[in-house]
Nucleic acid binder design. Structure first.
Lengths: 200, 200, 200, 200
DNA sequence: CATGAATGAGGGTTCATTCAT
DNA sequence: TATGAATGAACCCTCATTCAT
């Protein structure tokens, strides 16, 4: 099923879809980017929708694989988080197009149901991590989905700002980002709460 | 320049662009959503691009206005942040389409340079806030752009998860989110650092 | 529903479909034949199939109208037949494209069910005529459908041969054809049967 | 020149062209129906047009062969006609696809001139038969081409109606059809003319 | 001789835009 | 000013044809 031409097309499609979005990317442009004839993508994918779904799946699989392979499930929560976050950073620094693609095509109506289902299943271990963190009173008393949304938000906010040239991304920045994301979700120290006005 | 018909068209365009994206939304559909003839938008906007740029500007203006009107610049940093964050939450809960629209159209190639310039200027006071926070050693030692990206990330991550039905958004959630965002950017307490394994 | 442009398109389509068949006729060619832009047919017909179906219906309606208007149902069988046959001849001599179109598109898979149903209903009075002729022992003892097929066959065989230039069609030819068609379906005279070999 | 593969392709092409017409049948579908690779037809025919012309010729040859082999030229006119008609019936009942193919492709613009010429020559003996019938005052005083058109019309009208399911074709039906066709073309008996209204 | 992946011209169709009303 | 019929470029996709294997 995976032929060199098919992979060439998917590789090119990632860049084109990431740059222009699904409707903004035309098949002729995509084919030219892949260096193939304009009819060739249709020998490998039934339609433009089938192509974007295949690409979505391949990208999600690659991301999840990169995040979860040999994951140190028996390390401390803090350490697990660090590994998770830096893998996120590492994967997308290496594949920045994948970031734009996933952000732009997240939950679009042309994604098939099975692709959305795949996503739910892939996320399960990550949510389990946050669920466990909450039970162990390590993280904030929020739903795992909310904690995940916060972490993804911190990462993606910074990553997007970097992609747009609003800041320079050094290793130090990502280290700070990791600490920031952890502080965002860890259970606040009751002895040193955030000071609110009117409180002593 | 602002006529009732023009505003009707922009209102409808916000919904249509938010739902389908720029290239996915057709002018006939947009005109029908606005309840006007298919040629009418062209009496108010030179082109589809001009329309989306006008809408982008109007939306950004509304957001910035909502965030900054009567801003309590002399309150504490903590309080200023709270006001800022809850205004963000309030604005987008009231205009969820505006959120989708801005996320989908953020920095697309059809946005004109002056629209991007406008954005930079509107952001100036917000960045000044973070700059001041850093100098006052209240926030993390990160670039103001990074701090803003983190705060926006926490908010938008949660908001998007809510829009997709992954979590329910209560006032309590947004209160927790605000605390989380603050923890993400405030200067860590040196006496109570994040505990790393191997440290006492 | 019937606009000048729509009729112009149908008129042109009759010629183009008659000449090249459904699949052989391209919409751009058809539009050019109609003297309209290539997108214009789609403002009046949902698709090429919808167009051919509308044309089929219009043509069948015109034919049936021409055949049946003020039909002399109380004349003799022989006279009714003459009227029917000469109306057939008259209609198609006036609209030869309609002949080619109907022959080429008869019962093709792209015709919708309601169009086929329409045909069945339109044919009902004609079949009733043959049914009555059989009961009155005027025509051969064959199913009305068979008698109709024979009459249509005699007419269409000659008409097609004329269209292809194999013969010249004079009024005299059509008069002979009418007599021929009647002889083909009338009940044979028992006193002067066709002589078969072995018979006296 | 005639190889087994070539014949396999022609056999399959007859069915595919008969069902969908020339422009409606694609070469990949045709190749698959023949059970050969999609490029294989091009090793035997220069193009799709060359293929359909070869098929047209082969089909016409087979028909003419079936009609004329060992033809009883010295039998009575009536007997000759019977043989001719029943051979027509026999051939097409055995090869109904050939009927659809010839009807659909009769004189289409992609048929080459030599194919049309071939047809004219093949028809010569049949026309001679009708010419002789006329001279012998056995058939109507019509051009041989007209008489042939009538006979073909009676046959093809019935055959088509059968193919469309409008009637059931028994041996008896075809016997009646033969008598009908003969009555259509034989010289009317002057003593027992068709009765016209107003005549005694 | 047969294959089937690849090609690209051309098909049906959509839609941003125009303009007579 | 507002309309919507008309336009034609550009879309997604098919398929006749080629050619390396």
């Amino acid at each position: 099923m995976a032929t060199p031409t098919r992979d060439t097309i998917l590789d090119a499609a990632l860049g084109v879809f990431a740059e222009r979005g699904f409707h903004g990317a035309s098949m002729p442009v995509l084919a030219e980017a892949a260096g193939v004839g304009s009819g060739t993508p249709y020998r490998h994918f039934e339609s433009k929708e089938a192509l974007v779904n295949a690409l979505y799946r391949r990208t999600k699989d690659a991301l999840m694989g990169a995040l979860l392979v040999d994951f140190p499930f028996d390390a401390t929560e803090r350490e697990q988080f660090r590994v998770f976050f830096f893998r996120l950073v590492g994967f997308f620094r290496e594949h920045p197009d994948a970031f734009d693609f996933l952000e732009l095509h997240h939950h679009q109506p042309y994604l098939t149901a099975d692709n959305l289902e795949l996503e739910r299943r892939a996320l399960a271990p990550v949510l389990a991590f946050f669920e466990h963190g909450r039970r162990a009173r390590v993280t904030r008393a929020m739903a795992p989905e909310a904690l995940l949304a916060i972490v993804w938000g911190v990462f993606s906010g910074l990553f997007k700002a970097w992609r747009l040239g609003h800041l320079t991304a050094t290793d130090e920045l990502w280290a700070q980002a990791e600490a920031s994301a952890w502080d965002a979700i860890r259970r606040p120290d009751p002895d040193h709460p955030t000071i609110r006005e009117g409180e002593p």
